[in-house]
């Protein structure tokens, strides 16, 4: 039994270690979230709880922005769904390595499954294959990220409370989105997706219930996907 216990601990701490370099980027991001969520009009407890209930960085920023704009609840939930859809891919990709676990383990690990926990974990799994205690690696990576995210949110809320309204800090949210979107524009379909979504958002701005946002997002996704499909067909590659 001694060696089994060691193997669990070994996998767990390997997960924590693999997560450490990512935490350097996560910590300031969590602080920015905390400060901006507060500024967007969320209460301290709501801003903090969103980090543990939703626990998905970019969708939390988007939700804070929509709450600031007094968007209807259903539109906010729908937007969170669209922004977090990619987690289904992570779920599918990790599934073969977690297939033998109990539902309780699957539930816990699914809750901890974020971009930053997925990235080092899938690398580890692809390198080592299915291992008896491989799920402890994801647990280590996930918990390291989870605790860092909660702590950095709290610090951000603490600091954000000290920033006066006259600093126009609400504008830091769209600026954060600009910082997120520009690096992903790595080809014509991406630029087209961004431009068409932006244009539709302006044209459809007057639609009730912030439906313009959903319409614009779906347009951008459709335009990008269609262009990529056409380019791959034309190029013949892949």
């Amino acid at each position: 039994m001694f060696t089994l216990k060691n193997e669990k601990a070994r996998q767990f701490w390997a997960g924590v270690r693999a997560e450490l370099p990512l935490l350097v980027g996560v910590f300031p991001f969590g602080m920015i979230y905390g400060a901006l969520a507060l500024n967007a009009g969320l209460s301290k407890s709501a801003a903090q709880m969103m980090s543990s209930i939703v626990f998905a960085g970019s969708s939390q920023f988007v939700a804070a922005q929509l709450i600031h704009e007094s968007a209807p609840g259903l539109v906010i939930v729908l937007t969170i769904v669209v922004v977090n859809l990619r987690h289904m891919l992570y779920s599918a990709s990790l599934a073969p390595y977690l297939a033998s676990l109990s539902t309780r383990w699957k539930t816990l690990l699914a809750y901890l499954l974020t971009d930053e926990a997925y990235a080092p974990t899938i690398l580890h799994y692809e390198r080592n294959g299915v291992q008896p205690f491989g799920h402890w690696f994801l647990l280590g990576a996930g918990l390291a990220l989870w605790s860092t995210w909660q702590a950095s949110t709290a610090l951000g809320i603490f600091l954000g409370a000290a920033i006066p309204d006259s600093w126009s800090l609400d504008f830091a949210l769209p600026l954060t989105f600009i910082a997120m979107v520009v690096p992903v524009l790595k080809g014509r379909p991406y630029v087209a997706a961004a431009l068409s979504a932006g244009a539709v958002a302006l044209l459809a701005h007057a639609l009730p219930f912030k439906l313009g946002l959903i319409l614009a997002a779906l347009t951008g996704i459709a335009v990008g996907t269609a262009l990529e499909t056409r380019e791959t067909r034309k190029g013949g590659a892949l």
Partner: peptide
Amino acid sequence: YVPPAVLSAII
């Protein structure tokens, strides 16, 4: 295309 589309629609 979700990130560029959603974020640009907000920006």
